[in-house]
Simulated assay, not measured.
Amino acid sequence: MTTSVHTVLDSPCGPLTLVAREERLAGLYMTEHRHQPAQETFGPRVAADDLPVLKDAARQLEAYFAGDLTDFDIDVAVTGTPFQQRVWAALRDIPYGETVSYGELARALGQPTASRAVGLANGRNPVSIIVPCHRVVGADGSLTGYGGGLERKRWLLGFESSSRQPTLI
């Protein structure tokens, strides 16, 4: 059996629980996160500095929330079906500050009729923010389900959109 450990970080969108397993990030969950595993599976709580992957994730999340990082480079270990793995990999290709619809993501995966399945896989993403499932919206641009709650999805999209605005020198 693989041992997990976790840490909790403060962030502008509330506490984030980071779970590490086998020296890789296995989860990033928000308060009242839908589809999160039982907290008993997170393992003991440690300081972020106690494990290199947690320290790196904390550093990159801090840079992201400061507006200084737009693309995460963290080794993740997520468990899911082959289809879920494909969806989660495709999510990492959505550029910072941009959105795609579930249908567009399904077409990018070569399965144009699978938008509902893409939505279900998206909702099961265990590494929110780092694997940016918040960047997927409804066909009409509306905000639809998000594991961390629609208010957080709205905040994350607004944050990314506002930090992309050019500044005048």
Rank of each mutant, 00 (worst) to 15 (best):
S162V: 00
Y146G: 08
V137L: 09
P95W: 04
A66H: 04
D140R: 15
R45M: 14
L143V: 13
T31K: 13
E22D: 15
V19H: 14
S101T: 14
W88F: 08
V5P: 12
D73K: 08
W88T: 03
R45Q: 14
Q165L: 15
T70V: 02
Y64P: 04
G148N: 08
R154V: 04
Y64M: 03
N122T: 12
S163T: 13
L28I: 05
G147N: 13
A48E: 05
R124Y: 09
P166Q: 13
I129N: 10
P132V: 01
G67F: 04
G149N: 07
V78T: 14
D140T: 14
T113N: 14
R92G: 07
L16T: 07
F42M: 13
M1Y: 15
P95Q: 11
F42H: 15
T144M: 14
R152N: 09
R45N: 09
F65M: 07
L9P: 07
G43R: 11
N122F: 00
V78I: 12
G67V: 00
T31F: 05
R107N: 03
R152K: 14
I74P: 01
E104T: 07
T144Q: 12
L150M: 10
R34M: 05
R107K: 12
T167I: 09
R135E: 02
R45C: 12
L9T: 01
Y102C: 05
I130W: 10
S142D: 14
V5C: 15
R107C: 07
D71Q: 06
Q85T: 08
R34F: 12
L16C: 09
V100W: 09
F42W: 15
A63V: 01
G80Q: 07
G27W: 06
D75A: 12
P82E: 09
L105S: 05
P37N: 02
L69K: 01
G14T: 05
E104M: 08
F72E: 00
R116G: 11
P15F: 04
R135K: 04
L157K: 06
P15R: 14
V100S: 06
S115E: 11
E104L: 03
G141E: 03
D75T: 00
A139R: 07
V5K: 14
G110L: 08
L157Q: 09
S4P: 07
S161F: 03
Q85H: 09
A117T: 02
D71H: 02
A38D: 15
R59E: 10
E32S: 12
K153H: 02
P126S: 05
